[in-house]
Simulated assay, not measured.
Amino acid sequence: MQPSPAEVARTLAAGRLPGNAHIACRPSPHRVRHATDAAGRVLMLVPADGELAESLRPAEGADDVAVVLDVQDVPPVAGSPTLGRVWVSGWAAPLTGVEARQAAQDFVEIDPVGDLLDVGRGQVMFRLEPAEVRLETGGRMREIDPDEYAAAEPDPLQAVEWDLLTDLADHHVQEMAEFIRRQLADSGHRGPAGPPPRVVRLDRYGFVVSLGAPGREYRARLAFPRAVADRADLARLLHPVLCRRCGTGTPAAVDQGLGGAARHTTHPPTP
Results as ranks from 00 to 15, higher is better:
L234A: 01
P195H: 10
A103C: 06
R221L: 04
D111H: 12
M176R: 14
S80M: 04
R127T: 10
D70V: 04
V74Q: 08
G249Q: 09
P196F: 11
I180K: 01
G122F: 02
L43Q: 08
R198Y: 03
C246F: 02
M125K: 12
P192M: 06
R10M: 01
D37C: 07
V88N: 00
M141G: 14
R121Q: 05
L95F: 01
A151K: 14
G84M: 07
H30M: 05
A252R: 11
A235H: 11
M176W: 12
T82W: 00
V119E: 02
A13T: 04
D64C: 14
D170S: 13
L17F: 03
P251V: 10
V88L: 00
L242Q: 07
R190G: 15
E143L: 14
P240F: 05
A169H: 13
V133R: 01
Q256L: 14
E129Q: 11
A39G: 09
E178Q: 14
H239G: 11
M176E: 07
E217W: 07
A227R: 09
F179H: 13
P196R: 15
P271H: 14
L237Y: 08
L117A: 09
L237G: 05
V200T: 13
P197Y: 12
P75D: 04
M141D: 15
A62Q: 11
A185T: 15
P192D: 10
V124P: 02
W87P: 01
A261I: 12
A21L: 03
A62Y: 10
H189G: 03
W91Q: 13
P94T: 00
A103Y: 05
T270F: 14
L222H: 06
A78G: 10
V160M: 03
P3G: 07
D230V: 03
I23F: 03
W162V: 00
D70S: 06
D155N: 06
G79N: 02
L135K: 01
V119S: 02
V77W: 00
Q158R: 06
L83P: 12
R140D: 04
A151R: 15
T137S: 06
T11N: 07
E153C: 05
A62W: 08
L157F: 07
A252T: 13
D170V: 03
Y149R: 03
T250A: 09
A62M: 05
Y149M: 01
L242W: 04
R236S: 12
D70A: 00
G259V: 11
R219A: 09
A48L: 06
D163R: 14
P5G: 09
N20I: 04
P81A: 09
A252F: 12
V119F: 04
P81K: 06
V68C: 02
I110N: 03
E51G: 12
F179Y: 11
A21F: 01
S187I: 08
E129G: 06
E54G: 15
H264M: 15
A223H: 08
E129D: 12
R204E: 11
A6V: 10
A223N: 10
V160T: 05
G40T: 10
V86Y: 02
R231H: 09
V254P: 00
Q256M: 14
L12E: 11
